[in-house]
Design a protein around this nucleic acid. Structure first.
Lengths: 233, 233
DNA sequence: TAGTGGTCTAGACCACGGC
DNA sequence: CCGTGGTCTAGACCACTAT
C-alpha cells in the first residue's frame, strides 16, 4: 500500500487530499467510511475523523451522517484575509507608523448608511476621519461611524495615543459583523490625502460590527493607490 | 460554578470565549492549563483541547508548549472570502448565466508577469479573455494565462460549453497559490466591456496557482462597476 | 529537566437521516 | 431500523521549550 506508515492525521489528510486531487475518487463519489479507512491506514477511527474533518472544513468533501462522505463536485476557492492592526502591520514591515486624527464630531447618521447601520431616526453617531502613515507617507484613510449608545466609555478617549481602531478592537467586543471589499474613485478628500488625482481607483474595505445591544461601528478603510491585499491559498 | 454541566466542546469554547471577550482573562494573560480546565468543566482534557484549538485557530489565544495558553493581545480580524464558480454564483441568485470567449491564442509570456509566473525565457502561454454575463449584462472580465506545459489536455478544449474557469478547477489540481485583491482603473478594453468610461474604478482579484510541475495559471477577474465582495465575520 | 500542549488510541454512546 | 459520522473518555506517549 502506498500509504504504509502514514502516522499522523496530517499525513492521512494529505493522502486523502491526493486521492481527491488526482481523481482517484471522482467528484461526487462516495468514499470509504471512517472505519474502513482506519483499517487501511492502521490507525484509530478518531485519527481518520480528524483528517476528514479538515478536508470538510476546506470544502473539498461533504460529510453527512448515514449518507457518508462524498467528494465535492465543485470545490470552492477560499481565501482568508487577515485584517491586521495597522500599526503592527506597518511595524512588522520595518516601517515607522503614525496616525493623525483629521476630523472628529457627532452628527446624525447619514441617511445612506441606514441600511448597514440600523439606528433610530435622527440618532447621533460619532464620526472620525483618521489618516494612517507608513514612513511618513499616507497609507490608509479611515472613516468611522460609532454608535455612542453602544460604546459608552468612548467619550473619554481622545485618540491622541491610540487609534479608534485599536481602542475598539480592545474594548468593544462584537458578536457579529459584515465585511465587504470594493473599488472606489478618489473623491476630493481622498485625492488630497493620498496626493493623487480625482477619480484614482482605490481599494477599500468596509466593516460593520454589532453585538447584542445593536450596531457598534461602521468603518471604511481606503488604501493608498497601488495597494494589494494578499493571501496565499 | 457558572459553567457546571457544560458538556460539549462547543459549550466549553463558548464559555472560554466569554471569559476572553468579557476580559475575565485580560489580554496577554496566561489562562489555566488544559488539565485544570478539564477539572473545572468536569470533562476529559481532550475536550478542553478541542475547544482551545478552536479559539487558537480563530486567533483569539496563542498556544505554545510549555509556555501555556495566553489571550491574544490584539486579535486579528479575519475574513474568509469564497470565490465561487461564476456560473453557480449567478444561478444561485436566480440570474441567467452565459459567457463569451473574446480572445484566445498562444503568445510569449508578457515580461511584466515573469515575477508571478516563473517560466523559461520565451515560453509560450495560452492567453484567453472571457466575458461572463449575468442576465445579459457583463459581470466579470476574465483574463487568463495558462502554462501549456502544465495542462496538456487543455489543447482539446474550445471553451464553448464550459469556461476555462470551470475546466481548470476540475482538471488542474494545484498544490499552492497566491491571491490578491486590488482596485484598477478601466483601460480601453474594460471600459468597452462594461460600457463605462475610461478610468472607472474597478475591483479585481488575481489568482496564481502552481503544482509540483511549476506554474499552472494566472487569472485576473475584474468585476463590473459597483461590485462588492462580501463576507460575514 | 520538567511542565505544557499535541497527538494518538480503543472503546463507547449519541444524533441524524436513508432505508 | 440501523449505518454513518460526531463526540467524548481515560489514558498514554511525544515534542517543544522555559527555566
Amino acid at each position: 500500500m502506498s500509504t504504509r506508515d502514514a502516522k499522523s492525521w496530517i499525513l492521512i489528510r494529505d493522502e486523502l487530499l491526493r486521492r481527491v486531487r488526482e481523481r482517484v475518487w471522482e467528484p461526487g463519489a462516495l468514499i470509504p467510511g471512517e472505519v474502513e479507512l482506519a483499517e487501511e491506514f492502521g490507525c484509530a477511527r478518531t485519527t481518520v475523523n480528524r483528517a476528514l474533518r479538515d478536508l470538510a472544513d476546506a470544502g473539498l468533501v461533504h460529510r453527512r451522517r448515514r449518507a457518508g462522505t462524498r467528494v465535492a463536485v465543485n470545490p470552492p476557492h477560499k481565501a482568508t484575509l487577515t485584517i491586521p492592526i495597522i500599526r503592527e502591520e506597518v511595524e512588522a514591515r520595518g516601517g515607522t507608523y503614525h496616525h493623525a486624527l483629521q476630523q472628529r464630531g457627532t452628527r446624525p447618521l447619514p441617511a445612506h448608511l441606514g441600511g448597514v447601520f440600523p439606528l433610530p431616526d435622527g440618532a447621533e453617531v460619532l464620526h472620525t476621519v483618521t489618516l494612517h502613515y507608513e514612513d511618513g507617507r499616507p497609507y490608509i484613510h479611515e472613516e468611522r461611524y460609532i454608535n455612542l449608545a453602544n460604546a459608552p466609555d468612548l467619550a473619554d478617549q481622545d485618540f491622541a495615543r491610540i487609534s479608534a481602531n485599536e481602542w475598539l478592537v480592545q474594548n468593544a467586543p462584537y458578536t457579529g459583523g459584515d465585511m465587504s471589499f470594493f473599488a472606489l474613485p478618489a473623491d476630493a478628500a481622498l485625492a488630497d490625502a493620498f496626493d493623487t488625482s480625482l477619480g484614482t481607483a482605490l481599494f477599500a474595505a468596509e466593516r460593520s460590527t454589532w453585538n447584542d445591544q445593536g450596531p457598534i461601528t461602521l468603518v471604511r478603510m481606503t488604501y493608498a493607490p497601488g495597494f494589494r491585499m494578499r493571501t496565499s491559498i
